[in-house]
Each structure stands twice: as structure tokens, then as C-alpha cells.
């Protein structure tokens, strides 16, 4: 066995041990354009305010992607979370009312088990 193969085994968890995840595609309806960083900070604030440190760590939230959509004042993004915490994350997203004093309303459009699935639009 070569060194590279052994290294690759060490770096990646075997599939059976990997976390099961869900990818939420969401839409941010906002007053003015907001920054990805500001948004992620607000998502964490809201999640920790609602579920505390323990609950927040269980949901394993991470912002994969966020960009401005073609519509003037909306943004779309993809958020990763644990597969059994979708409703909790959804509630904490719904609790976000402003990002840096700009009013926002977030809704989840699609939930998928893969990033590819979350990116693909409904036909």
C-alpha cells in the first residue's frame, strides 16, 4: 500500500461513520443587500438564543453558500445542518427578524440530502 492511500484513509471518515446531513436552500427577503458574514453571525445568534450552546452544537449548522438572487432585494443560500434537526433550524431561521438593522424574513424553499439536490431548482 502506498503512502497516499493510507493518508486518504486517515483524512476521510468512512461513509458509515459520517454525519447525516441535510441541506436547506433558503431565501432571504431583505430591506437592503446583506453580507454573507453578517447573515451567518445572525443565524448562529438566533440558533444559540433559541436552543442554547448544547442544542446549537447538535444542529451542526454551517452556511455553504449565499449570494444575491436575480430579484432585486432577495438573497438565496444553502445551509447545512444535522438530518434530524431540520425543524429546529427552520424555527431558528424564522426567528431572525433583522441583520445589522436591516429587516429580513427568511424562508426555506427546499430540503435535500445533497448540495446538488438543494441547488437544483424544482421543475
Amino acid at each position: 500500500m502506498n503512502m497516499r492511500y493510507i493518508l486518504s484513509l486517515m483524512l476521510h471518515l468512512p461513509p458509515s461513520l459520517r454525519d447525516r446531513r441535510r441541506y436547506l436552500r433558503f431565501e432571504v427577503f431583505c430591506e437592503r443587500e446583506i453580507d454573507k458574514r453578517e447573515l451567518l453571525k445572525e443565524i448562529w445568534n438566533s440558533l444559540y438564543a433559541l436552543y442554547g450552546d448544547v442544542g446549537g452544537s447538535e444542529s451542526k449548522v454551517w452556511l455553504i453558500e449565499y449570494h444575491k438572487s436575480e430579484d432585486t432585494n432577495c438573497g438565496v443560500g444553502i445551509l447545512r445542518c444535522a438530518h434530524d434537526k431540520v425543524d429546529e433550524v427552520r424555527a431558528s431561521l424564522a426567528c431572525i427578524h433583522s441583520v445589522n438593522d436591516a429587516q429580513v424574513g427568511i424562508r426555506v424553499i427546499k430540503i435535500s440530502g445533497t448540495i446538488k439536490g438543494a441547488t437544483r431548482l424544482r421543475r
Binding site: 431561521l93 424574513g105 424562508r107
Partner: peptide, 15 residues
Amino acid sequence: IYDLRAPREMIALAA
């Protein structure tokens, strides 16, 4: 308009 939440979000909040 930013205060409105989609039905599924309302259901999650009610939970």
C-alpha cells in the same frame, strides 16, 4: 412585509 413568515416556518415556530 418582512414580518410575514411562510406557513412551514409558522408550523416550526408553533412546535
